[in-house]
Design a protein around this nucleic acid. Sequence first.
DNA 1: CCTGCCCGGGTTTTT
DNA 2: CCCGGGCAGG
Length: 759
Amino acid sequence: MNEHFFTEGMNTQQAAAITAGAGPVLVLAGPGSGKTSVLTRRIAWLIREQRIPHHRIMAVTFTNKAAGEMRSRVEALLGDRMRGLQIGTFHAICARFLRREAESLGYRRDYVIYDSDDQVALVKQVVKRLGIDPKKFNPRAILGKISNAKNEMIGPDEFQSLDYFSEIVKQVYTAYQAALRAANAMDFDDLLLNMVLLLRGSDMLRDAYQQRFETVLVDEFQDTNSVQYELVKILAAPQNNVFVVGDEDQAIYAFRGADYRNVLRFRENYPDPTVILLEQNYRSTQNILDVARAVIDNNRDRTPKHLHTDQGRGERITVFEAYDERYEAEYVLEQIQQLRMQAGLDYQDFAVMYRTNAQSRAMEQAFVNQSTPYVLVGGVGFYKRREVKDMLAYLRLIHNPDDRVSFERIVNVPARGIGKKSLAAFLDWVAHAGMTIGEALNRLYYDDPTPLSTAAEKKFRAFADLLSSWQEMAKVGDLVNMFDNITAQTRYYMHLDDTSNLPEEAAERADNVRELRGLLEYALEYEQPLHEFLAEQSLVADVDTLKDGAEAVTLMTLHSAKGLEFPVVFITGLETGILPHFRAFEELDGISEERRLFYVGVTRAKRSLYLSYAFRRALYSGGGTLSRPSEFLADLPRHLLDGSPLTLANLNKAQSLESQTRWDDSSSSVSRLERDLKSNTVTPSDSKIRSKIIPFPGIKPEAKNDTPFKVGANVSHPKFGRGKVIGVENKGEIVSVLFDDLGLKKILADADGFTALDE
DNA sequence: CCTGCCCGGGTTTTT
DNA sequence: CCCGGGCAGG
């Protein structure tokens, strides 16, 4: 095996990336440019040619599925098992490290991981305990703020309370973190943040981890957030052998704190990195690439790429207008059946993509009606099902009796006579005695006196006894037997019958419980400890459950589709308000992100691409409202499109809302909205958007329209230095500036010394 | 004091 | 359309 083995069949750029020398390397990889091959071969090359022991390599992927694939590809290249090679998502890798280091953070090593549902449940508990009205202050909104803060590495103490809402958030944040600790639980964000805090806080530990990892590789680098960036930075130091692969055009996780400008930051942070551009596409036809480019070229502030392929033009892209979402689904199915007959394609060659999970319903219905096999990625997936979460809560409580969220979930499921009042009394007792849930249950088990009423005490005692008996079974290691004992003792299957509307529903839910039992059985066969099994269950992503080779059409959101490819792709619901999603209009850079999402969808297709929209769409059953074709359709080159004359003519009307509001638009056509803006009359849609932007406190209401700060203008600020305007809000009073050194900041237009440099 | 029923409200994307 | 919360009956 020689060096060329790992670069065989690769193009010059790919080979250069695979065999790049030590130090920072940035690979800008367009879609379909073979980045997975590059990453896996790089790892194999490092192990074989550079003699780096495989356990001293860390590779971060975006999903567990990608991690599994990467591991097996590396193993196939090297013909050897690679146990100890750290491949996984940021979350999974941190969870593993923290399992070992938990104690230095004041956690126990058997800590549990709270997923988003658990997080919401805990925030709700905390909000109620603090006497805050959850109707006035939406727990999900509060959680969102907390999560953002954690992603920016801002703790509860440093959290700035600028207004009443953020003061509430600060309070909840503080109490929420305390509650997590009391429950010996970390949420998703804690996994990353705690790891950073740990490494920052201890020279010894930091040295140990830095020593351990000779080199760090990161996939989908454009979707890293601040904590993740920091983590990579710390772990890769001091030798800075850091190899990142990314594509700014595929950044679709800003809502989760991801910042594609980390790619730019990387170039500034590491002196003189090796930069490699992968532009040769091995996936799609030229027509698909041309359409993709037409989409993404509308985004500003990006490194232009020139994707090309040897595969020829291929067929044109089909655009279809359906009457409503049901017809749209029927159309998709018709095309699938036809292509299967004519082109000899299999079901697994097709994928149907949509912006929101809710859109899958109509699609699923059509697949069921036509008895066409499909797999649904995400949605109300297996792990989110009530019955599965219930049973997992039992397992988690057995494993960690302090787990408050799990306790509250199942203490009365199935109903065992412990209602709201009894639970409140119990929790009061726990709080006043300064105990954890587990300690209280322990006291009950040993028949210690409690302040509870006799009736309530009896019921809680019975529960504590049951829990203890399961814990005994768990100790002996017979987990499947224990599982069966839980369902038997609690009469869980009967409970499912009682709480289901239809017998079929009960049967389906019972199946889900049995499937979880099967997973547990499987885990035991591989001698996986319970805590590991539970951690794995919390960290599964929707797409992770997607198996290859199933004879079925794949249905999924555009987000889930990232990193995948299919011969035939349908992107449905190309309507204003759906793609781009209406929420995006309120967000800074929102439309650009929607466009990237569309771009990701388009570039999943290998040979055929179908774009569809409905004339009328019902969000939930009943009526439905008229919709308008997505503005993105108007951007597509007409000579590459196929469709009925009426549909194609319609696209002319798909006026781009964004180009209407783009203030630096240099095109000659002056839209109505632009004129309106200039004459200071605001259209309904515009005022609707504006009204949702909450002005900063202390801003004078008078509007100023003659702002010198236009999008794209270069500006200077006495404190923040030089930067570029990327957005203007509130009629020019607030300017969003991307500063060269400090990143994005919002500045008041009349701030002292804040000036425009050109014009 | 618990359970079942009804009504109203809210719905992007995910590790 | 589905969930969660509030209310009345048991």
